[in-house]
Design a protein around this nucleic acid. Structure first.
Length: 268
DNA sequence: ATGGCCGGTGGAACCGGA
């Protein structure tokens, strides 16, 4: 079973590139971020024609997540628990049944910039950085609950987190950025430390593997990348993993997203 | 060395991204 995560940066601008990649890479499941579309405007038929079931959680203009799956998607839920006032469409869950039933959690974690801190160094309440950190704590609680239920699960998506120096070409440029600040990385580690496996880093220790290159400043040509798209696996799912790779080449094609797909294979 | 973009909205600039 091949499962991919891909921040497509807008379905209207990317549906052709997305279909080309699906036809080529043939994932069984594609977990998408930044569809930037309401549910009704999502081109579901394009994917149904290719044998996928489609579940979306969209909103106008920004954010939006979706899951495409060649196997049925069961018990779909939308939104990250823990804050009923949060209206941003960044989270979706569904269960897919192979040899093991796996809960798929698709997420688009807030960027968090600009970083605003009080004189004491605390994130300014109501600011984007505080929203990011609070969202990460809600994600940690969700992971904790799924572990307590002993539900096999994976959390895949655009985490907007550079976990380690090895995950950026120029880490010094990111020191003060919400993607790499100590508070952000600590919040990510608190989730990992529940006992989850970060799929790519578990298989590849070398630096220099990225999943995002900015459109600006010739970042792709200079390989000024960062690795911010991740799979976190519960113990049962980690035991099933047979591969994890990044489809780097997509960034060099026509009309690319600024992210590329990351995928795992499971013996499931 | 420096600076360079893109998508969505809505019909021109602006917001948001990372």
């Amino acid at each position: 079973m091949k499962i991919a995560t891909f921040n497509i940066n807008g379905i209207k601008a990317r549906h052709q590139a997305l279909c080309d990649w699906l036809d080529d890479a043939q994932p069984d499941i594609a977990i998408l971020q930044e569809i930037k579309s309401v549910d009704d405007a999502f081109p579901t038929e394009l994917f149904e024609d290719r044998g996928y079931n489609v579940e979306t959680h969209g909103q106008k203009s920004f954010n939006g997540v979706a899951i495409l799956s060649k196997l049925p998607l069961e018990d779909v839920t939308r939104g990250l628990p823990g804050d009923d006032s949060d209206e941003q469409a960044r989270y979706i869950e569904a269960t897919v049944v192979g040899k093991t039933a796996i809960r798929l959690c698709g997420l688009y974690l807030p960027n968090g910039n600009p970083v605003e801190l009080t004189d004491e160094g605390h994130p300014v309440e109501g600011g984007k950085y505080a929203y990011k950190l609070a969202w990460m704590e809600r994600l940690r609680v969700r992971a904790q609950d799924l572990l307590a239920q002993e539900t096999p699960f994976l959390m895949a998506g655009d985490y907007n987190i550079i976990p380690q120096e090895e995950d950026a070409k120029s880490p010094d440029k990111w020191r003060e950025d919400a993607l790499f600040r100590p508070e952000s990385r600590a919040a990510f580690r608190r989730i990992l430390n529940l006992g989850l496996t970060e799929a790519f880093r578990a298989r590849v220790q070398a630096p220099g593997h990225y999943s995002f290159w900015d459109y600006q400043a010739g970042a792709w040509n200079r390989d000024e990348g960062i690795r911010i798209d991740h799979f976190l696996l519960s113990p049962q799912v980690a035991d099933l993993m047979t591969d994890c790779q990044i489809d780097r080449d997509l960034r060099g094609r026509e009309k690319p997203s600024d992210h590329v797909p990351v995928w795992i294979t499971l013996d499931n």
